[in-house]
């Protein structure tokens, strides 16, 4: 068995990718090698034991192998089963008794069915079925009723609904055929009615389809007049103009306000007020207008 075959068998045995088996084997034996080189004895279970041998100088020179006693050697003359049969044996255990019964001569072809039967019989003898305790039925219960209930769950309720008061199981069973015939007649009559209704329904649908088609065609070639939104447009324009006028008046109307205040006074004396009057009255009014104008400007800039 080459290392390639060893990897394949490992992967097949463990149902893992070959790469995983290869990685394990390389790592496993690399570690074993390094341990041996470091002077340690390596005991790999059933594989055997390897002991390093050193020179008088302490240099690692060779290994001494001692096979494990667990591994049984090949007896001379024994039939060797090679190939995949060995792996099948390890996975699917077949009792020796079953093989001996089904394959007594050892040379004739084996019928697999015989082996299966013997294996099943052997397991059945080893592990008998556990007897489940059965509750005894009351003496007054009718066995026919139970059987009907088991085989046709819900059937009894149906029959009871159809014939109220009739609780005899035997009568129910005998009358079942009559009920089925009646049901069949009813269903057939309903089906015929449905067919006739379907016929009328088809005609109605055809008429409706024609009406819908003509209505859609008329709408396509003569679409209804849409409502005019001109009035709404004019209203929006008017409102926009009003807002613009207000904004402009706020922006450029500060001088006029100042002149309104001046009209109350004599043009010669009031236009140039005294220092005390200027500081108290004229300055707060103009600053208020400037503040309003700046606010409007900011609002416009933000809206833009």
């Amino acid at each position: 068995m080459t290392r390639r075959e060893l990897i394949e068998r490992m992967a097949d045995r463990l149902q893992v990718p070959e790469h995983s088996a290869q990685v394990f084997l390389h790592a496993f034996f690399d570690v074993s090698k390094s341990m041996l080189r470091s002077g340690e004895t390596v005991a790999l279970g059933a594989l055997g034991t390897w002991t390093p041998e050193h020179d008088p100088d302490g240099v690692f020179r060779s290994v001494i192998y001692a096979p494990s006693h667990a591994a049984s050697p090949v007896p001379v003359g024994e039939d060797i089963v090679s190939g995949p049969a060995s792996s099948i044996d390890s996975r699917h255990f077949i009792p020796a008794e079953a093989l001996a019964i089904a394959h007594p001569s050892g040379r004739s072809p084996v019928d697999v069915a015989d082996i299966v039967i013997e294996v099943q019989r052997g397991f059945a003898e080893e592990a008998p079925m556990e007897e489940t305790p059965v509750e005894e039925a009351p003496a007054d219960a009718a066995p026919e009723e139970e059987s009907v209930e088991d085989e046709y769950p819900g059937e009894e309720e149906y029959i009871e609904e159809a014939v109220p008061g009739d609780t005899d199981a035997g009568d129910m069973l005998t009358d079942e055929g009559d009920f089925l015939e009646e049901d069949f007649d009813e269903v057939e009559a309903e089906g015929m009615e449905a067919e006739s209704m379907e016929g009328h329904g088809i005609e109605d649908d055809e008429v409706e389809d024609d009406a819908v088609f003509h209505r859609n065609r008329d709408q396509l070639y003569h679409p209804p007049e849409e409502r005019s939104n001109r009035a709404l447009l004019f209203v929006a324009l008017g409102l926009t103009l009003v807002v613009l006028i207000i904004i402009l008046s706020l922006l450029f109307g500060s001088d006029e306000k100042a002149s309104f205040g001046d009209r109350r006074h004599d043009p010669n004396s009031a236009t140039i007020p005294s220092a005390g009057t200027w500081n108290e009255t004229a300055e707060p009014e103009s600053s208020r207008y400037e503040l309003t104008a700046n606010t409007v400007k900011l609002t416009i800039q933000r809206s833009i």
Binding site: R3, L6, F29, L47, S72, P73, V74, I80
Partner: peptide, 16 residues
């Protein structure tokens, strides 16, 4: 696997 190969009388190459 090694044990089975031993029973069959096969050589087993233990990688390197």
């Amino acid at each position: 696997i090694v044990e089975e190969a031993h029973r069959r009388g096969e050589d087993v190459e233990l990688m390197t």
